[in-house]
Design a protein around this nucleic acid. Sequence first.
DNA 1: AGGAGCTTGTGAACGTGAGAACAAAATCGG
DNA 2: CCGATTTTGTTCTCACGTTCACAAGCTCCT
Lengths: 251, 251
Amino acid sequence: MTRASSRRPGPPTRTERGIPEATVARLPVYLRALTALSDSGIATASSEDLATAAGVNSAKLRKDLSYLGSYGTRGVGYDVEYLRYQIAREIGVTQDWAVVIVGIGNLGHALANYSGFGTRGFRIVALLDADPTLVGERIGDMEVRDFAQLEEIVEADRVSIGVITTPAGPAQDVCDRLVAAGVTSILNFAPVVLSVPDGVDIRKVDLSIELQILAYHEQRKSGEAALPQVPELPALNGMPDLPSVGGGVGA
Amino acid sequence: MTRASSRRPGPPTRTERGIPEATVARLPVYLRALTALSDSGIATASSEDLATAAGVNSAKLRKDLSYLGSYGTRGVGYDVEYLRYQIAREIGVTQDWAVVIVGIGNLGHALANYSGFGTRGFRIVALLDADPTLVGERIGDMEVRDFAQLEEIVEADRVSIGVITTPAGPAQDVCDRLVAAGVTSILNFAPVVLSVPDGVDIRKVDLSIELQILAYHEQRKSGEAALPQVPELPALNGMPDLPSVGGGVGA
DNA sequence: AGGAGCTTGTGAACGTGAGAACAAAATCGG
DNA sequence: CCGATTTTGTTCTCACGTTCACAAGCTCCT
Ligand SMILES: NC(=O)c1ccc[n+]([C@@H]2O[C@H](COP(=O)([O-])OP(=O)(O)OC[C@H]3O[C@@H](n4cnc5c(N)ncnc54)[C@H](O)[C@@H]3O)[C@@H](O)[C@H]2O)c1
Ligand SMILES: NC(=O)c1ccc[n+]([C@@H]2O[C@H](COP(=O)([O-])OP(=O)(O)OC[C@H]3O[C@@H](n4cnc5c(N)ncnc54)[C@H](O)[C@@H]3O)[C@@H](O)[C@H]2O)c1
């Protein structure tokens, strides 16, 4: 997250409506839990119920909610619909956000076909690709358009969120184009570190990293005592060849 | 992350080879940066260089690396190949890990087609789906197999990592089956909170949540002064209708 | 050989986040 | 109307993560 957070060093000035980042990341989870409860016809839920549904502990949940205001009732719990609305408003999904997806390959197709965004406050307004053989292809009720049209689309549809699903190589260029066109939030799937100017938020989703984190813990489970017991400082040539583990930047 | 961390409350006992979770999450990023440097023919890099390539600050990078051991040379920097190997070994990607993917729909197809895992220490050994019309379909050099074969595959190929790309509904069932079959690490794409027994690690990738986090920040950028200035405690019926924002659990 | 110049590794200070615990507020039964 | 009961909102404490700043250690040049 590249957020120019101008927090002055004074006392814990939380009054300025600054919700901790960790809390912001959990609000969508609560939102989903509330929607599930609501769909089951449940009108009221205690912090304990909600916490269970969201997979967190109840003290944390109550503290998170307290940043939004006092929306519960002591001795009773939270009104599901009401709280759902308050969280949705806080996150900003009561309005809907226009999104463009750039790079309609494997992943881009999957995202384009996904119906789950529309119901969550996001509207995909364009699928863009630089490959002329892809342009014109229909996916659902949308058509792949030329990346060159980016600027006019962003302007016409007031697009503020861009999703990058191109190979790693062109990702920074695509990112720059998005930013230049006026997009101020980017979700990046390409395995590169993108740099953006201040004021632009960027988040990444990186499957290889997730798997590697799992692998690390997995190794400790099985290993524990069976580890090859680290050659603490083997000569530089004391290491196996390791063809290309760790994954270059190529697509 | 559902890890039974048995840290006793004594002094900062870090000697037991416990690498902080935040550091573990960055090691794959360093690995990728090192691979990129290596591919450019760079043999040595300072913490400053590496930090830039990885998009973090250099003090953090040095501290992270210090948990692995002293692999740098003062006054010089880090040997790219050597450090790369050490990190790869620490994460556990010098060996390769067998992975099964369950649910070969939009996302499952994209993952199956993705070539980036093989080169990063992961080997997809099976694509599983419950839909009989999908079973038998070829994707690259693999064939979709029946989910019923899960147990034998896990055993035969010593699979420790499972990826869930089914709709939310069946995800917990699939998860239970995976765990019962012996899988101890799970990467979940379905928008539900999965519960797993101790000793099983679970990570989730949730695109809607990522977008919602971006939306939150986006709202604060544009709003700032133009916010509808919160009806602090409107009557319960004082809120708009909000059809189904927040996104139920359905696929 | 010795000193200048870098760069690492880490101690210490600071900030953020998690969880236990409890007082305050609401309901309900009598 | 009052006390028992429930559950929130918040305070306090501790753990974790980040950043600064600098001594220790390495190389290279004279
Ligand atoms: N597919 C996966 O499961 C998966 C998993 C992890 C990471 N990723 C990453 O996600 C990204 C996309 O993966 P993919 O499998 O869909 O790749 P892909 O090659 O199938 O698709 C990439 C698309 O981007 C388009 N493109 C290339 N350059 C472009 C440009 N300058 N402007 C606009 N469009 C451009 C290409 O025409 C292509 O259609 C890659 O960076 C990949 O590393 C993918
Ligand atoms: N496609 C996306 O871009 C996207 C984005 C965000 C989240 N997701 C989530 O990822 C998941 C997969 O999305 P998708 O678009 O690929 O869905 P999909 O409906 O295209 O595919 C789901 C697949 O799972 C299979 N399946 C269903 N029940 C199963 C079971 N019990 N055992 C084995 N296989 C089973 C189905 O046969 C189907 O092939 C969903 O939970 C979705 O919410 C997808």
